[in-house]
């Protein structure tokens, strides 16, 4: 059952991929697509290989990274609302990049984004800290929201001051966009993503134990502090990688885990993470496709589309929580 449902996500991703390569300002038929993609010839070769394929791969990679990050946070904090976008890490990463652009610092974007995300994470943790107590999840979420508000306020300020030539770039780091992505960015997100996934593989079992509660996990021989810190760092870095390529795309990290798990009915920690990554990739790629294809001749930033998809999800989730009296 579960395998069949996992195949469903894979099939949906494949469908979105094919459609993404075919649909756009220039429509490409299946034959031209094949010739352009595989044989590198025909009228579609340039469009597919230079414009659409890198954009699609960036969407898949960034979406998977964000989805993975959100799923880790949600499992670790045992709260479906805990996600790097809600908790301000994405906004922090985006702000760091926009600072780098406006000050002319020429460091690699993933590094800058990771620093921004990391600083935001440390800020959230430090500002939620009260003496002698673990901060509760709701405080973490609220403080994270506040950090996110501050970061996006400052991003807007810096974005307005950028010269018009950089305005599109600024837009990317405020709302998230996948326009003008090249093979460099593809290498970036997939390369770093692979490294981080390798780091994650080692920690999956620890995540499974942490889900049983701190006391039992420690009783089973887990180093609580070490494994928590490792997982949090991996999740923040994953989110930062996604942001470095696509900007702080909202709601992907929040939606991916619950959606993927609902579709696949995954149970174990590894399966849940995979489901989160898959549905993150699916959401982002599908949102970008919609953003390009819904109105011909107009390209919406992908962040606007995930906002249009994600906000109703969050509202639905909250109204359900209201009915059940949770939260």
């Amino acid at each position: 059952m579960s395998r069949l449902r996992a195949a469903l996500i894979a099939a949906l991703i494949a469908l979105v991929c094919v459609l993404s390569l075919m649909i756009g300002a220039v429509h490409i038929g299946p034959c031209d697509l094949w010739r352009g993609l595989i044989d590198n010839e025909g009228p579609a070769a340039f469009t597919v290989r230079v414009l659409r394929a890198p954009r699609l791969l960036c969407a898949l990679g960034a979406g998977a990274a964000l989805g993975l990050s959100g799923t880790i946070f949600q499992m670790l904090l045992r709260n479906p609302l805990a996600a790097p976008d809600v908790m301000g890490f994405n906004a922090g990463a985006g702000f760091a990049v926009i600072v780098a652009i406006s000050t002319g610092v020429n460091w690699p974007m993933p590094l800058v984004a990771a620093m921004g995300g990391g600083v935001a994470a440390v800020l959230v943790a430090a500002l939620s800290y009260r003496r002698g107590r673990m901060p509760d999840n709701l405080t973490l979420i609220l403080v994270g929201l506040g950090v996110g508000f501050s970061a996006s306020g400052l991003s807007t300020l810096l974005g307005l001051r950028l010269p018009d030539t950089l305005a599109a770039e600024a837009q990317r780091w405020i709302t998230g966009s996948l326009s003008a992505r090249s093979w460099t960015h593809v290498a970036q997100i997939w390369g770093l993503g692979a490294v981080l996934c390798a780091m994650l593989v080692v920690q999956v079992r620890g995540l499974g134990l942490l889900q049983l509660g701190p006391a039992l996990a420690a009783g089973l021989g887990l180093h609580l502090g070490r494994s928590r810190a490792g997982l949090l760092a991996t999740a923040v870095l994953l989110a930062a990688c996604g942001v470095a390529v696509a900007g702080p795309v909202p709601f992907v990290a929040l939606m991916a885990g619950p959606l993927g798990i609902a579709i696949t009915r995954a149970r174990g920690p590894a399966a849940r993470l995979l489901a989160g990554a898959g549905s993150g990739a699916l959401i982002t790629a599908a949102a970008d496709l919609l953003a390009r294809a819904l109105w011909l001749g107009v390209q919406l930033p992908v962040g606007v589309m995930t906002g249009l998809l994600g906000a109703p999800y969050l509202l639905w989730f909250l109204s359900r929580a209201a009915k059940e009296g949770t939260l």
Partner: peptide, 26 residues
């Protein structure tokens, strides 16, 4: 040495078999 705390947390939707497997972690 094994310990069962007073209120361990159950991951949502976990089966008995999967739960017991996690006891092999050490």
């Amino acid at each position: 040495l094994a310990i069962l705390p007073q209120a361990p947390l159950a991951p949502p939707g976990i089966s008995v078999g999967d739960l017991v497997r996690r006891g092999r972690a050490p």
